Amino acid sequence: MTQIISALSDVSHDYDALFVDLWGCVHDGVQAIPSAVAALQEYRANGGTVILLTNAPRSRHEVARQIERFGVPDDAWDDIATSGDSARAAMFTGAVGRKVWFMGQDHDLPFFEPLKLVTDPVAIERVELEEAEGIVCCGPFDPHADPADNRPQFLLAKQRGLKLLCANPDIVVDRGEAREWCAGALAQLYTEMGGESLYFGKPHPPVYDLARRRLADHVGHVADGSILAIGDGPQTDVLGAMGEGIDSLFITGGLARQETGTQTDPDPDALERYLAAEGVAPTFSIGRLR
């Protein structure tokens, strides 16, 4: 059974580092969440290290610029690990071929910029689907459209045996009060249709390996038992932490605020029913990061 806590400081003294999800935890897609910023600032002031671990299909430098615009200050975090960087590393080593069909929006195009993590990278060329050796998916062309609209293209891709590289395993995200589809919804559809999808963000291991490398750059090796993962996604943040042997703090007031009956705090009975249905067991739960 998960333990409901009232503040990060209730348990943070037991952990040397945090792997913290961004969207729904530190910001809402529009602006920073003040209580979360204050909690992370306090944690760092007491000697802890904060790695922002996000399924954003972009580089850590782009994410840093984005959260600055949202009002997340530099003293609330130490480094950033993104599913985008993890997926880019795979793309530049040829995971889905040299000629790729790109799914996403114009703001996702920096995904194709050079990456220092990879030496001797494959030269990637963006082409039409009919010419492609693989698919690079940063997200839908229209985040409000039904993912099923892509079935005709996916049928052709499956028939041609193309692999889909998913740069963001999230299914949905809330931008303010509006819910949007993410790349994970497309990858899920492609897999259901019989195609092969490759994942690099939470809950899959590659992005956690990157997060540990980012953490080691600052403080050296930190044992998994001394890391707390924080996030609002049961099938990404919590499931990923469970798979990595890391304790987790589930933010119930994010994606699951209605299902968990969260206003200030989650309803204990609703929370237990929700976690049982999701098949996950976070170590701790809290309404909002504070």
Rank of each mutant, 00 (worst) to 15 (best):
T2C: 13
L189R: 09
C137E: 09
T283V: 04
A270M: 10
W23M: 04
G94A: 15
R60G: 14
L8F: 00
K116T: 07
E180Y: 06
A211Y: 14
E278A: 13
V122W: 02
P206I: 07
I171T: 06
G24M: 00
T49M: 04
A38T: 05
Y274V: 00
I4D: 04
R58E: 11
Y274M: 07
A229P: 05
G48L: 10
A45V: 04
E125N: 08
G253C: 02
W181I: 00
T119H: 14
T119E: 13
V172W: 00
A148K: 06
L275W: 11
A45W: 15
D74W: 11
T252C: 13
Y199C: 07
D174I: 00
D78I: 15
V136G: 07
D149I: 14
V222S: 11
R126H: 05
G261Y: 05
I246N: 05
E272V: 13
G279P: 05
R151H: 09
S59G: 14
H27T: 00
S83T: 03
A211S: 15
G225Y: 13
A178I: 01
G201Q: 12
R126G: 12
G279T: 11
I4G: 15
F70K: 04
T262L: 12
V11H: 07
E180R: 11
P169N: 14
T262Q: 03
K163C: 12
Q41D: 12
I51R: 15
G245P: 02
I51C: 12
M103S: 08
H144L: 04
P203S: 04
H204W: 15
L109Y: 04
A183P: 06
Y43F: 11
L115P: 00
A90D: 09
E192P: 12
L109E: 06
S86T: 08
W77A: 00
R257Y: 07
G245D: 10
Q41K: 08
P34W: 12
F111D: 03
G195L: 07
E133R: 01
G194N: 06
A90V: 05
